[in-house]
């Protein structure tokens, strides 16, 4: 039961955070970063197995590998961007967090642009 581990880590980290935050808020931010990273590292093995299954399915369906890697890149960029933005917002710097999210959106758009271009080209070819 991995969920018990995760919930335990979350609850203990929250209790420690409440104790530390009263006296040293600058260290409590680092504690919350560490808790987030540890929980995500525990889930990373499962995520990689899910991605392996998706790759297998796309290989069988003969989908171009470009599309799957693009989707994976978008998921990775948006996860990292969200992680950083949440840390900034937790520390009370909402403005910096908003900028991080903005940068993540732009980078996702850049990654998705080739697919949009291919779609438009297909539509243009369909039109008489």
């Amino acid at each position: 039961m991995e969920i018990l581990q995760i919930v335990g880590i979350g609850v203990i980290a929250t209790l420690l955070l409440i104790v530390v935050k009263q006296h040293k808020p600058e260290i409590s931010i680092q504690l919350s970063i560490a808790a987030g990273v540890v929980i995500f590292l525990l889930m990373l093995g499962r995520i990689s197995s899910i991605i392996q299954i998706l790759e297998e399915l796309s290989r069988r369906a003969k989908i171009d590998n470009l599309y799957l890697t693009t989707i994976l890149k978008i998921v990775g960029i948006s996860y990292i961007g969200e992680f950083g933005a949440q840390i900034c917002r937790d520390a009370g710097e909402g403005a910096v967090g908003a900028k991080v999210e903005f940068a993540a959106k732009i980078l996702v758009l850049v990654v998705a642009l080739p697919i949009i271009a291919a779609l438009l080209e297909t539509i243009i070819r369909l039109l008489p």
Binding site: K24, E26, I27, Q30, L31, I33, A34, V37, V38, F40, L41, L44, I47, S48, I51, T69, L72, K73, V75, G76, I77, Y79, I80
Partner: peptide, 27 residues
């Protein structure tokens, strides 16, 4: 000093996370 020591540990953990995400999501 406390903040610096914590930062050293957290930076190592973050580097590990970013490296793994880069490998898994093929960034």
């Amino acid at each position: 000093a406390g903040v610096a020591v914590c930062l050293l540990m957290v930076i190592g953990l973050l580097a590990d996370l970013f490296e793994r995400i880069r490998v898994i999501f093929q960034l």
